[in-house]
């Protein structure tokens, strides 16, 4: 959450009120409107194009992924929702977060559901997130966990996350959204914001030089570029060129959410340069799940499109002394 969002939460106190619902029931002693039955199974399989033989014939079981379908309110709505859950959704509606979209579904299947099984369920509000801004709009994620029983016996668990949000002002155009894959141009990476405080850095990148700022008064190196020295406060500076050697000080692997122009999973490293400053960049030349803390890396410049080049760090096989090597050790 950004500082601004945190401040917003603190100001309106909404998040504290929402969070009070964590642990409260979302559904109590809910009953499936229909017992597990062959027609609904068949309609599901037709829609999904699922020809699995276990879901057909006299000994049919329901597709496990139908778990939630047996608990749905349908056109006549839910009578099983708890008062607490209704209040929670009402609070969100009242705060302007009137739209809803499901974002996550985690199901575990403990025993097959068979025609005739009577479904009952209980659910609890597991968590409510702080206010988040997403592509769709701003809102709160609400996570519920449901136990689904068949004839009183636990048959599966179902964790479900929704985003209750206020739609962003400008939705995507339908024509744009519905373009087939091949008609969509590959989105470009975001452009760096170049200003007078960091222009020298980007000029260096253009000349394939990674420049570190050095305080003209006390000699302290600093990165990323800033107008003044963090150590002594002096405004005068010059630069030194990084030699290009570094090690992975820390890293994360980016899985989700994917951003246009990025192809997850990929590793984002905090690289400690030999000069002592650290910078964030991609670690390349090694699978994302093989990046390790302490791994030696070397600077290179990667062209990402016709106008943008970026400094990235390539994993070094064995450190500089070991000479050239091929493939995995």
């Amino acid at each position: 959450m950004s500082g601004e969002e945190r401040a917003h939460d603190a100001r309106d106190g909404l998040y504290d009120r929402l969070r009070a619902y964590e642990g409260k029931p979302a559904a109590i002693a809910g009953r499936g409107k229909d017992p597990v039955n062959l027609p609904m199974i068949r309609h599901w399989c037709e829609a999904m194009g699922d020809a699995h033989p276990a879901y057909r014939g006299p000994d049919a079981v329901a597709p496990p992924t139908m778990l939630q379908a047996w608990t749905m309110g349908g056109l006549s709505g839910h009578q099983d929702r708890s008062e607490a859950y209704g209040e929670l959704l009402g609070l969100l509606d009242g705060a302007g977060y009137t739209s809803v979209v499901a974002t996550d579904c985690e199901q575990e299947y403990l025993r097959p559901l068979r025609p005739g099984d009577e479904i009952t369920f209980d659910a609890v509000v597991e968590s409510v997130s702080p206010r988040k801004t997403t592509k769709l709009g701003t809102g709160h994620f609400v996570t519920t966990r449901m136990d689904v029983r068949a004839g009183g016996e636990l048959a599966g668990t179902h964790r479900f996350r929704i985003l209750k949000y206020a739609p962003a002002a400008r939705p995507a155009k339908p024509a744009e959204a519905a373009k087939p894959a091949e008609a969509v141009e590959r989105p470009r990476r975001p452009r760096p914001v170049v200003n007078r405080d960091n222009a020298g850095f980007w000029e260096g990148v253009a000349a394939h030089r990674l420049l570190i700022q050095r305080c003209a008064a006390c000699g302290t190196l600093r990165f990323p570029w800033l107008p003044g020295c963090n150590d002594c406060g002096a405004g005068e500076w010059d630069t030194v060129e990084a030699g290009g050697e570094g090690t992975v000080h820390s890293y994360v692997v980016m899985h989700h959410p994917p951003f246009p122009a990025f192809d997850p999973p990929y590793a984002v490293g905090l690289i400690e340069l030999a000069e002592g400053v650290r910078m964030i960049s991609n670690v390349v030349g090694v699978p994302y799940d093989k990046v390790r803390i302490g791994m030696p890396v070397r600077l290179e410049f990667q062209r990402v499109d016709e106008e943008l080049e970026l400094p990235v760090f390539r994993a070094v096989e064995d450190g500089p002394a070991a000479g050239p090597g091929e493939g995995e050790r």
Binding site: P64, D104, C105, A177, P180
Partner: peptide, 17 residues
């Protein structure tokens, strides 16, 4: 036999895609 399915949604599936 499916034992667990855990999914997260990102970009919506719109008609025509």
């Amino acid at each position: 036999v499916l034992r667990k399915v855990a999914i997260r949604l990102g970009a919506p599936n719109y008609p025509g895609d």
